[in-house]
Design a protein around this nucleic acid. Sequence first.
DNA 1: GTGCCTTATGATAGCGCAAACATTCGCCAC
DNA 2: GTGGCGAATGTTTGCGCTATCATAAGGCAC
Lengths: 348, 348
Amino acid sequence: MAGRTRNTKSKRATLADVAKLAGVSAITVSRVLNHPDKVSGDLCHRVREAIDTLGYIPNQSASSLASARSQVIGVAIPSLSNIVFNDVLRGIYDVAGAGGYKVLLADTHYSPIEEEGMIRTLLSQSPEAIIVTGGDQTRSCQRMLSSAAIPVVQMMEILEQPLDMNIGFSHFNAGFAVGQKLIACGYQKIGFIGARMDPRVQQRMAGFKEALQNQDLYRNEFFATTPSPSSIALGGELLRGLLSTTGGKLDAVFCCNDDLALGALFESQRMRVSVPKDLALCGFNDFETSAFVNPSLSSVHVPRYEMGVQAAQMILDVLNDKPLASKQVDIGFELRMRQSTCMPASAQ
Amino acid sequence: MAGRTRNTKSKRATLADVAKLAGVSAITVSRVLNHPDKVSGDLCHRVREAIDTLGYIPNQSASSLASARSQVIGVAIPSLSNIVFNDVLRGIYDVAGAGGYKVLLADTHYSPIEEEGMIRTLLSQSPEAIIVTGGDQTRSCQRMLSSAAIPVVQMMEILEQPLDMNIGFSHFNAGFAVGQKLIACGYQKIGFIGARMDPRVQQRMAGFKEALQNQDLYRNEFFATTPSPSSIALGGELLRGLLSTTGGKLDAVFCCNDDLALGALFESQRMRVSVPKDLALCGFNDFETSAFVNPSLSSVHVPRYEMGVQAAQMILDVLNDKPLASKQVDIGFELRMRQSTCMPASAQ
DNA sequence: GTGCCTTATGATAGCGCAAACATTCGCCAC
DNA sequence: GTGGCGAATGTTTGCGCTATCATAAGGCAC
């Protein structure tokens, strides 16, 4: 609580300063900045010169307060260090920025409790819209979002009952598709490793499990999960653990994401387990590495950047009163089967 | 410019609403939120109930305007999709968040021109401090930053003449160290591949080049660079190009980052060029993958998360009038030599 | 010329909050 | 009892901007 002293007393220039220098009223300066078509070319020019001279930068707080428009879009994601969200963010930033909006970003650390606090903080900035991840907000968080009466997009997954708008894909279906594919490839002893176990990973696992159960191939002891954060190192550990508890009987493993899958692949190489001859591996998210590693890693591709773009675009459309085709968009996914799941000819 | 109609006219609750419900004055509510120690327990409780009842969320714009404190730290980074910056960002967010600050983030796309516009936007939010990447801001951008009269941190590299505070490490020294190390390992025909060629990559290259020149080992045709964004795919392409133009004479290649290095490694494997027997590879940034890939990839480790933490901490310290040990912090780097640069016994 | 419209500019008020100053009250020393 | 002090609460004001309304100046039909 120490006294906050700024050594410079040269206060920032204001609209009024610019107006005085240009010999016009403040509102005219405001118009030059916000509705230049409503000011004559002559004045417009004079005002701009004054702005340059003073190095005037508008005070967005005052503008927001007076106009009830903050030009801010709030975004909450579970993790800053997960590539998955970076790609989505890039899409959001590109579109929001081009539309004249700033993005205020919060990292919820995969915790709905933290998320609630962070969304409260976001809302205190009077954002014109909010983008959140998934649908596992706390009740009071959902109430806050609703009563904020602004457009809300829940992204990354398709939800049964979205708060407002929704873009993503079905993780259950994706997991199910992987399960079906591995079975179709001829694999019989199929395992799963998962980390973090956030709602989307759980849905992938549930879909995968159902596909196996449909063919009577589900075995509880072939599934290894941990709430720990996902990493390459962890992928190796989980795979080694699974192979040891199952006595190496597995012939395919679905990893809940590419971090784990790469870790499993690298660990297999060190254990002299040949992929895919001895063991097939499939990841999720399709990182760039997955396409280039040897053997290349099968994965589920998701148009993440595109999802971010569309999420932001839906918001811009609503904010500009453009008609929206649908409040819910299934952006889909695509199995990218590569060398790591090529069933060897000699398979039983 | 369509009319912006909000269907709900239920305006958000204000301090005054809370005050009326609690039967106190507005300033008391403000005190409950900002200086609870100055309000009696009884009133404090009553006010908090009113806040809950109304779902009151303070209007940060009004608060900023009235108090001249925005609780915002502006951050500009060159890329949202480069893991390097994610780690730094995580550090910044963790510390800034714990200190009660929001982070307003801008992606400059490695362009000083874009950066200038984005910093202008950041400044319009009246941030209490700014963190930017590197030192290649435009003149007018630097002028804006100076006249904003707020703490500024330039991060990622050590600068000769920082605007204000500075944290990072010497990319020149890091490149030089890699050069020396490869030479010490006994490599003689040493190449370099680089992409993006932003200022920091250029410095790494310059340091590396100098190390080679010192031993008369620099050969211009062993250096391949491109302004294209770095990627794993590009690493493979650049390596293949370099090997073909040099007739495969190289025995070691320093890649300006781990993306390129991994791409080079994977491409080597596909070309049946054995790493490190036929070709040594060294990357930069030490991604998690690098430690686990086979053969494991030598790289230069940089404490990125720590750098973000310290950048934010320096700012919090200045904002709280705590004495600062130094305005410039060299966070260092560390060579992590792994299998990809193990000189084979049979080397000439 | 009159009336009416459009365009360009200005004056005023108020957005929601907190700083600064004002008031009230109770307590204590003497 | 009196004066003085601090704690608790309130009143006023203004942060910098824009919405709204007002005004002025010009154009045009008749």
